[in-house]
């Protein structure tokens, strides 16, 4: 099962020609094939149906299939472009393309904006920002008082919300990231440049994993 079987004949839903994907992403054809290998591994970890289910995504991220996380949920939803509850291999490769070191910074800024626009209103609102800070605190050992959280959210919001209308729009987000480039550091995965080294071939990788 998976994106591409060794025979190359049977393909699962969402299969896309690696050559076409390579044209539309920063990846080479061999890098796309290596990502297919990674996809096959992730998509068969719980249900071997060639699709990444949320539990499989959580298992890969946290080594725990039941660990839900606000941010992992948002990433999953953004990768699930068709919004059918699973990540298909084409969606996986296209989405990871944004995280490639050579992907346009504008794409990374846009992706991060959509990530943080929890309710998809086209704006990052103060309540959303506070919700994300609280979610982050819940998953870490960091304990901050309600007052401190308010101060952090207020300060960040006043810095980013240039127009002062109580919400951060895309243009304001872009300017804020340009002033604070470290905010999108996690939108780049240096590992993607070495993906063919990690997954050199379909056959070899499956043998190594045994």
């Amino acid at each position: 099962m998976g994106c591409m079987c060794s025979s190359g004949i049977k393909h699962t839903p969402g299969y896309e020609d690696p050559a076409l994907l390579a044209k539309e992403t920063p990846f080479t054809v061999s890098e796309v094939e290596s990502l297919y290998e990674l996809f096959n591994k992730l998509s068969s970890s719980i249900i071997d149906d060639g699709l990444i289910h949320k539990e499989e995504f959580q298992l890969a991220l946290f080594r725990n299939r039941n660990k839900s996380n606000l941010f992992a949920d948002r990433i999953f939803d953004l990768f699930d472009v068709k919004r059918n509850g699973v990540i298909e291999c084409g969606e996986f490769v296209r989405s990871l393309g944004v995280f490639h070191p050579n992907a346009p910074v504008e794409d990374k800024i846009e992706f991060a904006f959509r990530l943080y626009d929890l309710r998809q209103t086209g704006f990052i609102e103060r309540e959303e920002l506070k919700e994300m800070v609280i979610a982050l605190l819940h998953e870490s050992d960091l304990v901050l008082s309600e007052d401190v959280i308010e101060v952090i959210v207020d300060k960040t919001f006043s810095d980013a919300d240039i127009k002062g209308d109580g919400k951060i729009d895309k243009e304001e987000w872009k300017q804020f990231v340009e002033k604070n480039p470290s905010l999108i550091k996690n939108m780049t995965l240096p590992y993607l440049k070495d993906i063919t080294l990690a997954f050199p071939s379909f056959v070899l990788t499956s043998e190594l994993e045994d």
Binding site: L61, K155, A198
Partner: peptide, 26 residues
């Protein structure tokens, strides 16, 4: 560093849920 000087987005970006490098770990 004082908590009150933290950038909220900087804080959020440290979430484990946003660290996709875990996907590549064997």
């Amino acid at each position: 560093s004082q908590p009150v000087t933290m950038n909220a987005f900087e804080l959020i970006s440290k979430s484990q849920g946003l660290n996709l490098s875990s996907l590549f770990e064997k």
